[in-house]
Simulated assay, not measured.
Amino acid sequence: MLNTAKNRVRLDRLAIGLSALCAVHCVATVLLLGALSSLGHFFAAPIIHEVGLALAILIGAVALGAGLRRHRALFPLVTGGIGLAVMGSALLVPHGVSESVLTVLGVSLVAIAHMLNIRADSQTGCAC
């Protein structure tokens, strides 16, 4: 089968294609890893965490506070407040596992609080 010129050409083209894919993979990997490592300091910068927490507090206070005024359910506000406090405590520990655990726990509590807020709205018939 490989004796025919047509099959040898196909095999050579396949090999060239695989070589090209290998080269693209190698270059893309280096570029992607380089970009991620270059941007890593940006994502780990304390200002990112501080601004993110400030936005979470602002948006959480507005949304959960408005929900409390609409449906008078205190539990979503308390849950969200605890979540925001846990998120804030993540700023006080060194970068690493502790910070990640506190952040994920806090964010989860805030998300649950917003879901509770939505549920309380639907139970009171508020389509605000």
Rank of each mutant, 00 (worst) to 15 (best):
K6H: 10
K6Y: 14
K6L: 15
K6D: 15
N7K: 14
N7I: 12
N7W: 03
N7T: 12
N7F: 08
R8N: 08
R8H: 05
R8P: 05
R8Q: 15
V9W: 01
V9D: 11
V9H: 07
V9C: 01
V9Q: 09
V9A: 13
R10V: 07
R10M: 12
R10D: 06
R10F: 06
L11H: 09
L11N: 05
L11F: 02
L11Y: 02
L11P: 00
L11Q: 14
L11C: 03
D12Q: 12
D12L: 10
D12K: 08
D12G: 02
D12Y: 01
R13C: 11
R13K: 12
R13F: 02
R13W: 00
L14F: 08
L14N: 09
L14C: 02
L14H: 06
L14W: 00
A15E: 12
A15H: 13
A15M: 01
A15F: 03
I16L: 10
I16F: 02
I16M: 06
G17D: 15
G17P: 01
G17A: 14
L18E: 05
L18T: 04
S19N: 10
S19M: 05
S19Y: 09
S19A: 09
S19E: 12
A20T: 05
A20I: 07
A20Y: 07
A20F: 00
A20S: 09
A20L: 11
L21P: 01
L21A: 08
L21W: 06
L21K: 11
L21M: 06
C22M: 08
A23P: 00
A23Q: 02
A23S: 01
A23V: 13
V24T: 13
V24E: 02
V24A: 08
V24Y: 03
H25R: 06
C26W: 11
C26P: 00
C26R: 05
C26L: 13
C26H: 10
V27C: 06
V27M: 07
V27S: 10
A28D: 12
A28M: 04
A28C: 04
T29H: 10
T29F: 07
T29P: 00
T29V: 04
T29N: 04
T29A: 13
T29Q: 10
T29L: 07
T29Y: 10
T29C: 03
T29W: 05
V30K: 06
V30F: 03
V30P: 04
V30H: 05
V30Q: 04
V30C: 01
V30E: 09
L31W: 10
L31K: 12
L32Q: 10
L32I: 14
L33W: 11
L33R: 07
L33M: 06
G34E: 05
G34Y: 04
G34T: 08
G34C: 01
A35V: 15
A35H: 05
A35G: 14
L36W: 00
L36Y: 05
L36C: 09
L36D: 06
L36K: 12
